[in-house]
Every structure is written in structure tokens, then in C-alpha cells.
Amino acid sequence: MKQVFLEIKENTALTKDVFKMTLVGDVGEIKKPGQFVNLKISGVFLRRPISVCDRDENSITLVYKVVGKGTKMMSSLREGKTLDVLTGLGNGYDCEKSGDKPLLIGGGVGIPPLYLLAKELLNQGKNVSVILGFNTAGEIFLKDEFENLGCLVTVTTVDGSKGVKGFVTGAIEGGYTHFYTCGPEPMLKAVYGKTVTSGQFSFEERMGCGFGACMGCSCKTLTGYKRICKDGPVLFKEEILWEK
């Protein structure tokens, strides 16, 4: 973990309520796909944890959805402004486990961290397939970006307005060696039930600090209590314990 000040280079809408923000500065602490940053947004008390969608040597890109007061304020920030950022948070996805044909399954605002993961896996010469789930055609984002990387992309929409009608689980076929997923919890549960290989799940939870101090986001797993922010957000399929 490191506290840094990053400058907003871009903050634009991708859809009605999904935005893309690029931040420039010391981003060296982001070492793995699936890690996140925790942003101080003036006007709200707690920081806002956002997963990293992409990174290069001196910038990171965040793709986030406006869901409440904090993200609404975030969407109105202009380029040139400097943000107080805790970076290098979370364990991130383990790329070593992917096998030759990894499958990436993302739902809605859970899709962004899979982009950097896809890039990393393609760099390692893997054959990457991606399933992106949305409610409707107007909400689709990052599809072209995944295709431009060289992934085989399948889109699903709940209302059938684009791609395969239904949920992401309807588009899961055999032949993958390992899977990576991120999305709303009901989707993660369905993916858990439908998949047949080992895999990794990235979870979202209300956090206090985002760096392991407050125990605000602890969950029970088959390997003990884990803090989503510090010991996660990525958990392996074999350690997940669904409650409720």
C-alpha cells in the first residue's frame, strides 16, 4: 500500500452512468490485475474503492459506475484535478493458474478489472475468451476494447437486445482451463454453480479503510476469516463459503 497524489487526465462517460477516469502519477504499486485503489473524494467521508481497469508506466484507468453520492461526485471531477489515492490495495488475480485457455466472465461494473487481466494473459501467450454480461444493449461498455486486445468476446444481455439473451452462465461452454470472474454476487454464485474447473472470484463489499485495519469487510471462507480488502478481493473457488 502507498498513499500517492494522482492527476486526473481524463474523466468521460462511456454510457449513461459508467465513466472512465485516467489518473497520472506514481502507479508502481499496482502490480497485478484485480488490485484496487481507494480514492478520497471531497464531500464524502470515506474513501471510494475502485478496481484498476488498465495501467501503463505512469497512469491507471478506472472504469466505474455512478451508484451513489460518492461516485456521482467523482463523475463531476474535471481533468487537471489531483486526487489523494491509496494504491496497491488487494491481492489481485493470480495469472499463473490460468492454463492455456482461460475464460473471463464479467457482469456489469465487475467487468473493468478483467481488462487488465486479459491483457496480462494475452501477453503470456494465452488464448483468452471473455463473456461480458449486461442488462441491455445501451449499457454495453469495453466490448470493443476487449476485442481489440485479441480476446474472443461473447456478450449477453438479460433482455436479449444484443448478443446472447439471458445471463452470463448461459454462454459458458466447455474447453476452458481455468476461469476468472467479477460481478454482482448473484452472478458469482451462478458462475460458481455452472463452472467445472478451478477459478478465481473477485468480491465487492462495503469497506471502512480498504487496507486491512478496520475488519469492516471480513468474510468467512473455508480457509478462515478473510478481509475482502486485504486478503481479497480475489478468492479461489475452493475456499469460498456462500452464506445465506
Binding site: C214, G216, S218, C219, K220
Partner: peptide, 22 residues
């Protein structure tokens, strides 16, 4: 283990926690 999640709520100039002595 403490309490069920969510354990954190944001407030104006503050927060509520119900970690439950984990």
C-alpha cells in the same frame, strides 16, 4: 468473527461500524 456484513455505513463527517469485536 463478529457481526454479519455490511458492517460499515457512511455518515456526514463520520461513519458507523458494527464489526462486533472480530
Amino acid at each position: 468473527f463478529g457481526n454479519d456484513l455490511p458492517r460499515i455505513a457512511e455518515c456526514t463527517q463520520g461513519m458507523i461500524n458494527a464489526v462486533g469485536l472480530q
